[in-house]
C-alpha cells in the first residue's frame, strides 16, 4: 500500500503550510456570506478542499488519525438538526418556518441580517463535512476492493 501513504516531501511541506490558509479563506467566505458573493456553500466547499488536500498529500491513514471521522459524521448530521432548530424557532418567534426573528442590524455590517449568518455557518459546516466525507468514503471503498483481490 505504498501509493496510499502520500506524496513527496515537497508536496507535504507545502500542504502543511497552505492548509490553514485555505481553511481561513473558507471561514472568511462563510462569515461574509451575507455581504459579498459566496456564503455557506462556497466557503464549505473551500474548507472541504483543504481537507482533501491533506488527504491527497498525506494519504488515507494519516488523515484518518488527524481528523476524527466519527466526529465529522456527527457534525454532518448535527448541523442539519441545528438548521431545522433555527427554522423551528422561527415558527415560535415570528410565526413562520425559517422566519428571520433576530434583530437585523444595519446594512453592510458584519453582525447584521438576523439569522442569515447563523444559517450560513451551519450550511458551511454541513457542506464541508459532507463533501469531504463523500470523497473519504469513496476512497475507502476503493481500498476495500483492492484488498479483496
Amino acid at each position: 500500500m505504498k501509493s496510499h501513504d502520500g506524496m513527496t516531501l515537497i508536496v507535504k511541506t507545502v500542504t502543511r503550510l497552505s492548509v490553514w490558509l485555505i481553511i481561513l479563506y473558507g471561514l472568511y467566505i462563510i462569515l461574509h456570506g451575507h455581504l459579498t458573493p459566496g456564503g455557506g456553500f462556497g466557503g464549505g466547499v473551500v474548507i472541504a478542499l483543504a481537507f482533501l488536500n491533506v488527504l491527497l498529500a498525506f494519504g488515507h491513514k494519516f488523515t484518518g488519525e488527524w481528523l476524527k471521522i466519527p466526529l465529522l459524521e456527527k457534525l454532518e448530521s448535527g448541523s442539519t438538526l441545528l438548521f431545522m432548530l433555527v427554522g423551528l424557532l422561527g415558527i415560535f418567534y415570528a410565526g413562520s418556518f425559517l422566519a428571520n426573528y433576530i434583530i437585523k442590524g444595519s446594512l453592510y455590517h458584519l453582525f447584521s441580517a438576523g439569522t442569515i449568518p447563523l444559517l450560513n455557518i451551519i450550511i458551511g459546516v454541513k457542506v464541508a463535512m459532507s463533501l469531504f466525507l463523500v470523497v473519504w468514503v469513496m476512497a475507502a471503498f476503493k481500498i476495500e476492493e483492492e484488498e479483496e483481490q
Binding site: 459524521e73 448530521s77 438538526l81 431545522m84 423551528l88 418556518f97
Partner: peptide, 19 residues
C-alpha cells in the same frame, strides 16, 4: 403545513445523528 415536511426530515437526520 410545514410540520408535514419537517417531521419526516427531522426524523431522517435524528436517525443519522443517533446512527
Amino acid at each position: 403545513l410545514p410540520l408535514l415536511i419537517i417531521v419526516p426530515l427531522l426524523t431522517a437526520f435524528l436517525i443519522t445523528f443517533i446512527g
